[in-house]
Amino acid sequence: MSIEIFQNFAPATSNWHMIDQARIDAFADVTNDHQFIHVDPVKAAETPLGGTIAHGYLTLSMLATMAYDIMPDLPDSSMGLNYGLNKVRFLSPVRSGKRIRGRYEVARCDQKDGRLTIEWLVTVEIEGEERPALVAEWINLFILEA
């Protein structure tokens, strides 16, 4: 049963994932958010941040990608969905060229009516930095096979 997998899930950390300027630029193009602090290295270098930074929502969007590194196999699940977020706080900017990873801990899990809901406590760490990029309460919904 899938719920038992998550009830016994030990906190886990994903692999490192690069947030380079190409990824930031691609995200800017997809979201149409071309604020200079993200896409203009020359102008961004003149700010106290010293260069371009990732969009907060780019960092947040990496939760799913990083979760693939740690997510256990659910043999009785037909699909998984993002169900929402209870809380998100952006604590530190992710500078272009930095790597991030996610630390995942199961806060709650509930199974009923053929659905499994998992609430994760996620911290996104920035390589070489003390403060995390963000913390979030992220919810996944899995549809279970009958």
Rank of each mutant, 00 (worst) to 15 (best):
R115H: 08
G56F: 02
T123Y: 00
A45R: 12
D69E: 09
I100A: 10
L60C: 09
R115W: 09
P93G: 08
V135N: 05
E105F: 03
Q35L: 05
F142V: 12
D73S: 15
L74P: 13
D40K: 13
E137W: 02
Q7V: 09
G50S: 03
A136Y: 00
L116M: 06
A22W: 03
Y68H: 15
I143P: 08
I3G: 11
S96I: 03
E137Q: 13
G51M: 05
Y68A: 15
R99Q: 14
L74E: 06
H38Y: 01
D69G: 11
A107S: 12
D40V: 06
M79S: 13
S61M: 08
H34M: 01
Y83S: 03
Y57N: 10
G128K: 11
Q21I: 06
G97W: 08
G97N: 08
I100W: 07
V88R: 03
E125Y: 02
P132I: 01
T117A: 07
M62A: 14
A67P: 11
G128P: 02
Y68C: 15
M66Y: 02
S78W: 05
A44H: 01
R23K: 13
W120D: 01
I100G: 06
D29R: 14
Y83C: 05
L63N: 14
G50N: 10
A10K: 15
L85F: 12
W16R: 00
Y83N: 05
E46D: 13
R99M: 12
T47E: 07
W120M: 00
D76V: 14
L49P: 00
E105Y: 09
G51S: 07
V39Q: 08
M1K: 11
T52G: 01
L141E: 03
N140S: 13
G114Y: 01
E145P: 11
R89V: 13
L81A: 05
V39G: 07
V94S: 03
T47N: 03
L85M: 11
R108I: 04
N86M: 04
F36E: 09
G84W: 04
G97S: 11
Q35H: 10
E46G: 11
M1R: 14
E130G: 05
A28Q: 01
S96A: 15
E145M: 09
R23F: 03
K87Q: 07
P11T: 12
I3N: 12
L58G: 10
R101H: 10
G102L: 02
G50A: 10
T59E: 01
D25V: 11
L144K: 11
G97H: 09
G84P: 07
Q7W: 13
R89T: 14
R108S: 13
G50R: 02
G102R: 07
W120C: 05
G114T: 11
I70S: 13
M66G: 07
I126Q: 00
M71F: 12
A10Y: 11
R108M: 09
E119N: 15
D33P: 06
I126Y: 02
V30K: 10
A146S: 14
R131E: 12
